[in-house]
Amino acid sequence: MSARASGASPMSTEWPLYEVFVRGKRGLNHVHVGSLHAADDEMAVRHARDVYTRRNEGVSIWVVKAADITASSPDEKDPLFAPAGDKVYRHPTFYTIPDDVPHM
């Protein structure tokens, strides 16, 4: 592929899109913050630092090509999430405990 990212370049030759995840501080998960374009993985990390962490917003950055992400499709929303709906016993509120039992 002769990728050129010049002036009126068509969409297909644009630098790939990366999704950016930042760990806000130790003890927290990485959280999705947005996306950016970069020529390669290393540049994506550098750009992510400049674009998304100019004010100490993070201690660690993950980048991943958007094309490599597999997502649940909204069309499948019901079947995919439905099993959780009829398993109410997975939630603490399913169980009735008298109010006077402490620390429950």
Binding site: A3, R4, A5, S6, G7, W15, A39, D40
Partner: peptide, 20 residues
């Protein structure tokens, strides 16, 4: 600015291809 920056974008792309 966009046109004068084109060579930078092209160089980065070429470098990424070489690394790969």
């Amino acid at each position: 600015a966009h046109e004068e920056g084109a060579w930078v974008r092209e160089a980065a792309t070429a470098f990424a291809a070489k690394q790969r």
